[in-house]
């Protein structure tokens, strides 16, 4: 099957500074693909090359099999690009902004009004469509910003940090909407530095840092890179020293550490299922007053791979 969007060996340099080096991935039809990386990792530069705003120094971009460099207009017609900033006319209404993009993308005059209505419905702004954009909330502007990229029914939607500065309610509406689109078969390239969004929306994730893709795979594959051990935090009441000694011997516990006068941290396989055994192990010495099981996630993988937190 032809990939909806595929890139290979993308490189962009500014003088001595390498912004992006040897970036490549492939997005299948109906697949939601996440590009995860800290600020300055090269996400926006990569996207700019994918949508034809930056010319790569090396590498190719294929949109539905069409080479972006060779036939840019045909390739661009299949892409819906949602820039990080709100790129809309503030003096115009939501509907007028959508009409602008409809004309720009060559929607036939006859079907334009109807398609605008459909998109407004999809992004949940039908009732506010005739208000000026500068009277909208940040979340509403974000939704029109996304809607403008959907009018021409692209094969792949490329979103560059679409939820920056959005209230939780609008964020949820945006993510729900994106899941619907993917469910309907649209491909998605989603960049964010919000781990939980990428975990929720994307089937497959590439982690990008310093301009290079350092890991790529499904969420499960990526998490497995840091192992499957869970972290268990226990708070104890009673003879903590004796209880700590007992906990170390429980089968499945790999490592144990005292983290305070009353607290112990364990690293264990299948932590959640180990809890009853841990609680009964300390009986007689102490009682467990609080527990927390932390399963490995993308954040852990990310920290492991890059040595930095995403929100630096």
């Amino acid at each position: 099957m032809t990939a909806t969007l595929a890139c290979e060996g993308l490189r962009k340099r500014y003088g001595d500074v390498t912004a992006v080096e040897d970036v490549g991935f492939s997005i299948a039809p109906g697949q939601a693909y996440g590009l995860l990386g800290p600020n300055g990792a090269g996400k926006t530069t990569t996207i700019s090359m994918l949508v034809g705003l930056l010319r790569p120094d090396a590498g190719t971009v294929l949109v539905g099999g069409t080479d972006l460099a060779a036939d840019p207009r045909r390739a661009k017609a299949r892409i819906g690009y949602v820039p990080q900033e709100i790129a809309l006319y503030p003096e115009l209404t939501g509907r007028e902004n959508l009409r602008f993009f409809g004309r720009l993308f060559g929607l036939a005059r006859r079907g334009l009004a109807g398609r605008i209505e459909e998109v407004l419905d999809l992004i949940g702004l039908s009732d506010r469509a005739d208000g000026r954009l500068d009277t909208y909330s940040g979340g509403m502007r974000r939704r029109i910003n996304i809607g403008a990229a959907l009018l021409h029914r692209p094969d792949v939607l490329i979103l560059d940090e679409p939820t920056v500065g959005v209230d939780p309610q609008s964020r949820k509406a945006i993510l729900d909407g994106l899941e619907l689109l993917v469910g309907d078969g649209m491909s998605l390239l989603y960049t964010s530095h919000y781990m939980e969004e990428v975990e929720r929306v994307c089937d497959r994730v590439a982690i990008i840092d310093h301009g290079r893709i350092i890991a790529e795979g499904t969420r499960r594959e990526l998490i497995a890179m840091v192992g499957s051990a869970d972290k268990i935090e226990l708070v104890l009441d009673g003879d903590v020293e004796a209880a700590y000694a007992k906990l170390r011997t429980v089968e499945g516990v790999i490592e144990a550490a005292r983290t305070g006068a009353e607290s112990v941290r364990l690293i264990a396989e299948g932590g959640r299922y180990l809890l009853p055994a841990l609680i009964s192990a300390v009986e007689g010495s102490a009682t467990v007053t609080a527990t927390q099981v932390i399963e490995p996630d993308l954040e852990a993988t990310f920290l492991h791979l890059t040595g930095t937190s995403l929100r630096d």
Binding site: R73, A77, Y89, E91, L92, E96, R99, F100, F101, R103, L104, F105, G106, L107, A108, R109, G111, R115, H152, R153
Partner: peptide, 17 residues
């Protein structure tokens, strides 16, 4: 659905509005 892109018309209409 598809017609020819009308960038000039789109920009003129939007700018005048």
């Amino acid at each position: 659905m598809s017609g020819r892109p009308r960038p000039v018309a789109a920009l003129v209409a939007a700018n005048l509005r």
